[in-house]
Design a protein around this nucleic acid. Sequence first.
DNA 1: TCCGGTCATCGAAACGTTTTGATGATTCGT
DNA 2: ACGAATCATCAAAACGTTTCGATGACCGGA
Lengths: 343, 343
Amino acid sequence: MNGSTARRATIRDVAEQAKVSISTVSHAFSGSRPISQATKDRVFRAAAELGYDANPSARSLRTGRSGIVGLVLRPRFALSGTPDRAETFNRLVGSVATEMLRRKVGLIHVPDLHDPSVSSVPMDGCIVAHPYGADEALAELRHRGLPVVTIEEDPDQPEFTWAVRLDYTTVVTALLDHLRDQGASSTALLTGTEGNAWNRRSQQTYLAWCERHGHAARTELLSEGLGIDDAAAVIRPLLASSERPDAVVVATSDFAALTAEIAADQGLRVPGDLMIAALTDTEHSRSAIPPITAMDLNHELLAEEAVELMLARLAGAQTPAEPVVIAPTLRVRASTQRSGEAG
Amino acid sequence: MNGSTARRATIRDVAEQAKVSISTVSHAFSGSRPISQATKDRVFRAAAELGYDANPSARSLRTGRSGIVGLVLRPRFALSGTPDRAETFNRLVGSVATEMLRRKVGLIHVPDLHDPSVSSVPMDGCIVAHPYGADEALAELRHRGLPVVTIEEDPDQPEFTWAVRLDYTTVVTALLDHLRDQGASSTALLTGTEGNAWNRRSQQTYLAWCERHGHAARTELLSEGLGIDDAAAVIRPLLASSERPDAVVVATSDFAALTAEIAADQGLRVPGDLMIAALTDTEHSRSAIPPITAMDLNHELLAEEAVELMLARLAGAQTPAEPVVIAPTLRVRASTQRSGEAG
DNA sequence: TCCGGTCATCGAAACGTTTTGATGATTCGT
DNA sequence: ACGAATCATCAAAACGTTTCGATGACCGGA
């Protein structure tokens, strides 16, 4: 009543004002027991006057559920500051957020699970995006008994089926076939170093493809943490070498664009002398000169399916026999098209 | 102990296992009272063995704070499905998320404040992005006594200073000056219809500029909700008319790119016959042909400042005398450069 | 030997809900 | 007109913490 500190109205205040018991107020709102219309009216009016809104902490303490789903992005993903990473991060986070909003479920970004200074967070379940191999955050969450769904599988836990994963094998194979069809006879792979499914699977697929075609595999490590200059220091000698590949598949599209620049500097024509493709599609690949063929990871669909899976899991669905599989989209652009038609 | 249903360990379990009282466990963790080293050791070991982690709901019920900050994006912003809006949305959401992560604070996306079917959410404060005039969500939050910080001001509440806002006046004026310098003699404004600061301020600035320069103002409404075809139906006659403007400022960059296409269809040269600029910068403006001059809203900086402001507010800072003001960046590109130099 | 004072620990209240067994009041069938 | 059944409401317990006054145990000074 007095304006000292605006204390939030509680269910007790509403009960007093409506001259009923606390439990009657609760029942009136939840409908869990019949309450006469006259009483309901009084309760609702009192609640409106007081601006009552149930305390979420008290409610979830009692009920054991919060209506909130957590999202964890494995940290290095977000921390590296290049715009390429930012676009990927934003697109994934934005898609998950949009999808959650659409479903009217609260979404919370979980800071650091292991930092004890961070007060933990009430969530009914948690989506973990791009886990590493034998991911510890994943283990921690599952140990807590929290329902988890992953975007991309933990490469060391193939038996975990609450996951949405990308079918790299098919698409990377298609890409390598495409390069060969366009005349590439020696394709090198510049791969990332983080131990997630995206790196591991594309490496495996590349090696298997080479083996199958009697093609000498040539893999170069290009750590995701490298700055532009350091990356250039890896790429430049590769293109200058006498045993230069005539096609390169670069993991991230920012480094793919960098490769295109370096090629131009060295007087190599793309795609004539060197074809370039990327395993992630961002503005770098789209607006490079020439535009670079890239694998679009389809974050929107990934997010959509992951949210759906989580909601199903929370609703008590059975453990699925298989993860949900999504096909990335191969976007073929000028950087790999030697034959006539332009994109 | 038995594997039926993995109940989460509580503070009581830890206390029993360590043979101390509940309050001792609490004190051991929080350090709010001195506990002997021997006892602490026992407590921590018991906690580790049991995988104890304090229940966040119980904690925040008791302490009154959750360590979580909410983020509300006014809905129409997110719902309209064009990629342009998605990029804007993603960039803002991603930036806020990144910044929160960096500060180790939980961030929660609040679904719909007014939908009673949505269980509300425990937050210590809330950031509201791009409020409308006399925004009701904003009013609701403030009525609940929740500390609020806005990204962009509610145009009808200029006295609310817990806000980060963009200085449109300077930049839009600079843009109009630039167009005039490049030879535009009649510049039209194709503005959005939502009542947020971005629309309102740019309209005001445009009108004031016209007044100041004795320039006939020409404003066309282009609702943010329009599809491409509907938008084209508004733009086409404008460009075909005998009183065609020789420069247009289009609110959203997707429609600006559309304008460039329509101009090309009608045989108009950009920037020769028609200059085009956008009040938001996305891939549409960057990769249009020709690339379109645009105002970059600087979402990253906006997010950073908003988070900082919120944290200050939660830490008990005084109400600031003025909102934080950020300058958008004008990115001048080929679409408005008649004189020699290209971007 | 007794008293005032730290020091470590304990017990109980409180936070705001939901849930459930209990209680009167009303209705219905006979 | 009486017991049984139904209906609306109430009171109290429980959820898992943090906080704070209270309680002993121990120590030093006289």
